Amino acid sequence: MTDTRLDVLAIGNAIVDVIAAADEDFIEREGLIKGGMQLIDAERAEELYSRMGPGREISGGSAANTVAGAAALGARCAFVGQIADDQLGAVFAHDIRAHGVRFDTPARAGDPPTGRVLILVTPCGERTMNTLLGASHFLPSESLDHDLIRDSAILYLEGYLWDPEQPRAVMRQAIDIARAAGRKVALTLSVNFIIERHRADLQGLIDQGLIDILFVNEEELICLTQDDDRESALAKVSAKVPLLVVTLGADGALAIQNGQRFTVAAEPVERVVDTTGAGDLFAAGFLAGISRGRGVEDCLKMGAIAAAEVISHYGARPEADLKALVAQKLG
């Protein structure tokens, strides 16, 4: 890649995860859908939090997790996301900087508070997420450093943040700046309900050739194309995106680049503790590989290694030495 100050500049939700163990009965009593993600308001957040078991506060946010993982693998990364001037905002800012990620977005005064996700993890490792987006959806255009976007090899956008109007406009502006500078634009679609609400918009980005790298899981791919046949859906999207990356859970992942398909098996994990952030860290490994000029097959393997590490413990940020794990497995 052309020499740049940064490898990956991400824009996404600035959120702190509050993670607690829960049994199946608790999920049912609270009227939650196991393994799902729902948006909640401040009142519901307080109510649910009061009934949760002991929790751990760990900074999260999909794109923030990705750049934290990519930085752990040696990539030069920055993050743009809105926090509030409160305790959780300070936690988020400290944590992402401690991972070696540049974070310059000023904290926002007043309500709403910094976003948080109440994550309930059942014994099987499945996570049920309840999200208060808070300040993250008030990201202003002033948060964009145009020169930093121009000096970043890859602009990485979080689909979750495409829903609210204000940050969506910011991301559109960032796409224009990145493409004018000849940089690559990567997008993760994040979740089905975002696709359903903004399918025409997201399809438009793809049809116009504005997305260079697209990250989806199999469900999101089917939701995007509204085609129940995976092969047909892959053909439709890969014809318009230079590099399509599809995670397949326990079946690993695949990528299609200019018509050529690559596959990787999932890395073995002794015990799945918490699947929070598996897709985020897969993207981290993949992007770190791309930024270092590795081939697509190696990038898939790096993604699988990073994802396996993060599901072996609570939280969506790496705890083990990802560089050492990659060196051990790939050299």
Results as ranks from 00 to 15, higher is better:
7 D>I: 13
9 L>W: 04
11 I>A: 01
13 N>G: 15
15 I>V: 15
21 A>P: 06
28 E>F: 12
30 E>G: 12
31 G>Q: 13
31 G>S: 14
33 I>S: 14
36 G>V: 07
43 E>A: 10
49 Y>G: 05
55 G>S: 09
56 R>D: 13
57 E>D: 08
58 I>N: 06
58 I>K: 03
61 G>R: 01
64 A>E: 10
66 T>V: 14
73 L>A: 11
76 R>L: 13
77 C>R: 06
86 D>R: 01
89 G>T: 00
92 F>N: 05
92 F>C: 05
96 I>G: 05
101 V>Q: 05
101 V>H: 04
106 P>Y: 04
109 A>H: 10
112 P>T: 00
113 P>V: 10
128 T>Y: 03
133 L>F: 14
135 A>M: 00
135 A>S: 00
136 S>W: 04
137 H>G: 14
139 L>K: 01
146 H>S: 09
153 A>R: 10
154 I>N: 02
155 L>F: 02
159 G>F: 15
159 G>A: 14
161 L>N: 12
170 V>Y: 11
173 Q>A: 14
175 I>C: 08
178 A>R: 01
180 A>K: 06
182 G>K: 03
187 L>G: 06
188 T>F: 12
191 V>K: 13
199 R>H: 13
201 D>Q: 11
207 D>K: 02
209 G>I: 05
212 D>T: 07
214 L>M: 03
215 F>L: 02
217 N>S: 08
226 Q>S: 15
231 E>N: 09
231 E>S: 09
234 L>T: 09
248 L>Q: 06
249 G>W: 06
250 A>E: 04
255 A>P: 04
256 I>V: 05
259 G>Y: 02
260 Q>V: 12
262 F>A: 10
264 V>E: 10
265 A>Y: 04
267 E>A: 04
268 P>V: 00
269 V>K: 01
270 E>C: 05
276 T>G: 13
284 A>V: 01
286 F>K: 00
293 G>H: 01
294 R>H: 13
295 G>A: 02
298 D>F: 03
299 C>P: 01
303 G>T: 04
306 A>H: 00
307 A>R: 04
308 A>Y: 02
311 I>F: 09
311 I>Q: 10
316 A>D: 12
316 A>E: 13
318 P>A: 10
321 D>P: 06
321 D>I: 07
